[in-house]
Simulated assay, not measured.
Amino acid sequence: MSVFTPLDIAAIGMVTPVGLTAPASAAAIRAGIARLGESQMYGKKGEPLVMGLVRDDYLPPLTGSIRNQVGFLSRQGRLLRLAAPALLEVCRGLELRQIPPLLLALPESWPAGAQSVGPALLGQLAAQSGLQLDLRRSRTVQQGRAGGLVALRRALDLLTIQREPYVLVGGVDTYMDRSLLKALDKEERLAERGVSDGFIPGEAAAFLLLRLASQGRVSPIAPIARISSLGLGVEPGHLYSEQPYLGDGLADAFREVFNSLPPDAPRVRSVYAGLNGERFWAKEWGVAYLRNRARFEEQLDLEHPVDCIGDAGAAQGPLMLGLAAIGVQRGYRSSPCLVWCSSDKEERAAALVQQAPERGSSTASAGLRRNA
């Protein structure tokens, strides 16, 4: 049986098309409020593409130095404007001697012509946010939707081996890139009127402040929720592979999640699913669920935030972990809750979120709970 050291979620920050903070985003998505509409981007048929976007005037402008580096209308500039306020939210009010290392999920590599992003974004994010990030130990995880969950394993190394008291795990993505949208449209992956197989491009940023659950006894900050298990998988027959698709990657990720639990552990009652409207992912979920069916309750709540905000790409993992954490803390999502994400390429990942044990309150924890 594999072993996972539980992690506590101590704080959350988000920017989404339906909310500029974690509480606002969670409340809007819970209520089913959607912000999807025609954009200024056009598809190959000459019609405006439907997208889930944050209103431009809701985002902070780029600082002068960063604007000169990346350009205001670039994809990289958009990522920084999304990420900075979410990062500031997760760090707000926390009396940390220094900002912890950041593991940031970014988009996978895309077709030639699409604007690429990489490790340089970390330094630019520090300048845009005004925070003194620990750049020496911070890393990017350029693995798309599953990247934020993949980063949890790296976060464990920082917490257990390097004995960091806290680690930040986040993700940011936007499909606001003409070359990228053109390539996806050519592949007929984008949603169209009257077509049931396609996704609505979106954007978001989400960050989690994590610590070892065992450190909760000595911390003044009460946890929002607990990540109790993690599973990773690799899908050889992924969306851009020539190998046959067998559905092994996500099923293996589920199996690793459940194998780290005792046999009498409660069955999963709610799921935040990495579905986006494309049939490929629905098929993958079906395979993984059936191979692990004994671990799920018959009455299962299946949540897919893309209905409200579109496909959030590399932000999807931290975003859904944060939504699950707020949901189980406030009692409107059943615990334990499974969160899973699949990247366009081979990465697959899943994690289990459950209610954190009750503990005494304090001024710091009360403030954090209001912020959650």
Results as ranks from 00 to 15, higher is better:
141 V>S: 05
141 V>G: 08
142 Q>W: 02
143 Q>M: 15
143 Q>K: 13
143 Q>T: 06
144 G>P: 09
144 G>I: 06
145 R>M: 13
145 R>Q: 09
147 G>W: 04
148 G>H: 07
148 G>M: 15
149 L>D: 12
150 V>H: 11
150 V>E: 15
151 A>K: 06
152 L>Y: 11
152 L>A: 07
153 R>H: 11
155 A>M: 08
155 A>C: 13
156 L>D: 03
156 L>T: 07
156 L>Y: 00
156 L>C: 13
157 D>S: 13
157 D>W: 10
157 D>L: 15
159 L>Q: 00
162 Q>K: 06
163 R>H: 15
164 E>N: 02
165 P>W: 03
166 Y>S: 04
166 Y>M: 02
166 Y>H: 15
166 Y>A: 00
168 L>I: 04
168 L>T: 02
169 V>C: 03
169 V>H: 00
169 V>L: 05
169 V>I: 01
171 G>H: 01
171 G>I: 01
172 V>Q: 06
172 V>G: 08
172 V>Y: 11
173 D>E: 06
173 D>H: 10
174 T>V: 06
174 T>N: 08
177 D>Q: 04
178 R>C: 05
178 R>I: 07
180 L>H: 10
183 A>I: 02
184 L>F: 14
186 K>Y: 15
186 K>I: 03
188 E>P: 01
188 E>F: 11
189 R>I: 03
191 A>E: 12
192 E>H: 06
193 R>D: 03
194 G>A: 15
195 V>F: 07
195 V>N: 10
196 S>T: 14
196 S>K: 08
197 D>Y: 05
198 G>P: 01
199 F>V: 00
199 F>G: 00
199 F>M: 08
200 I>A: 01
201 P>Y: 03
201 P>A: 12
203 E>L: 09
203 E>C: 06
203 E>R: 09
206 A>H: 08
206 A>Q: 02
207 F>M: 13
208 L>I: 08
209 L>S: 07
209 L>N: 10
210 L>N: 01
210 L>D: 02
211 R>W: 04
212 L>E: 12
213 A>P: 06
214 S>A: 11
215 Q>S: 14
216 G>T: 14
219 S>G: 11
219 S>L: 14
219 S>Y: 01
220 P>Y: 08
221 I>C: 05
222 A>C: 07
222 A>Y: 00
224 I>F: 04
226 R>G: 09
226 R>L: 05
227 I>A: 01
227 I>H: 02
227 I>P: 00
227 I>G: 03
228 S>M: 08
228 S>T: 10
232 L>V: 05
232 L>M: 13
232 L>E: 04
233 G>T: 04
233 G>N: 09
234 V>I: 07
235 E>F: 02
235 E>T: 03
235 E>D: 12
236 P>V: 00
237 G>V: 12
237 G>E: 11
238 H>W: 13
241 S>V: 09
243 Q>H: 09
243 Q>K: 12
244 P>G: 06
244 P>F: 05
246 L>W: 10
247 G>N: 13
247 G>H: 14
248 D>L: 13
250 L>G: 01
251 A>Q: 05
252 D>P: 01
253 A>R: 14
253 A>M: 10
254 F>P: 10
255 R>L: 09
256 E>T: 10
257 V>T: 09
258 F>C: 04
259 N>P: 02
262 P>D: 15
263 P>D: 08
263 P>F: 12
263 P>G: 13
263 P>Q: 05
264 D>I: 09
264 D>Y: 06
264 D>H: 13
264 D>F: 07
266 P>Q: 06
267 R>S: 13
267 R>M: 04
